[in-house]
Amino acid sequence: MRSQLSALPVSGKIGLSLVVFWVVLAIIGPFITPYSASELVAYDVFESFSGKYWLGTDYLGRDVLSRLLDGARFTIFIPLAAAGLACATGTFIALFAAVSHRRTDETISRFMDALISIPSKIFALVMIAAFGSSVPILLTITAISYMPGSFRLARSLAVNVANMDFVTVARTRGESRVYLAVKEILPNIVHPMLADFGLRFVFVVLLLSSLSFLGLGVQPPQADLGSLVRENISGLAEGAPAVIVPAIAIATITIAVNLLIDSLRGGATYSAGSK
């Protein structure tokens, strides 16, 4: 493990430390807020950095640092879980399709095409209208919206690998389809799928933020980073930290995840080549 860590390139180390930083912050954040996240603590709105309010105050005079610490968990864990769910189900359905008979493959693929043709925002709006907005619903909606894209990528990768000779060798051995999919094909597509996961994580962050923008995301008084940007947007003209800081936070999270995943791929080929 230690050798793997040291084998990471610099960008990967930066990505890893940022990801660890945000995950830790998301876990302990709600317990270390200097003020209550929903309490109006200052009379001045859009205050700048100060000793009292480290990251200033927002449009209602609440402490931005406290709101950031409280909201980070939504922006980290919902997209993480949703992107993870989307990629995992997408990949496994794709593997199943790739090793199945052509008819099964076609049926699944056309069904996914139908799903992919539904715009994700409209789909989210309809679902929220029907079931109301809650964290489990948001998770399900985003996972379903991004699963077909993941499926398509995984399927095209898996079909290529499934035509390789080593899969044919396993087939002539009489191996089961589950073995072909999990042991022969999956290890060869897992790295591009990880990169895809990073992309989808960013998409989910954006979708959730835009839902929050419409007031349909995480419900007040709780707020994710996307809604923090949205609710303080009027402070942009004043250059208030209340709008800039959460935006920077979203940027660092998404960039860190992508840096880490890109370097994991490089790291894996490196270790395979050097050993």
């Binding site: 000779d165 044919t168 060798v169 051995r173 009489g174 022969e184 060869n188 395979a272």
Partner: peptide
Amino acid sequence: AIDERSKAECQHIQMVFQNADTALNPAH
């Protein structure tokens, strides 16, 4: 067809492919 053959029959006939680069799983 291979699907109709028993495991023992599969065992008795083994294939060696031309290109070892593609015949060996690079992940294993």
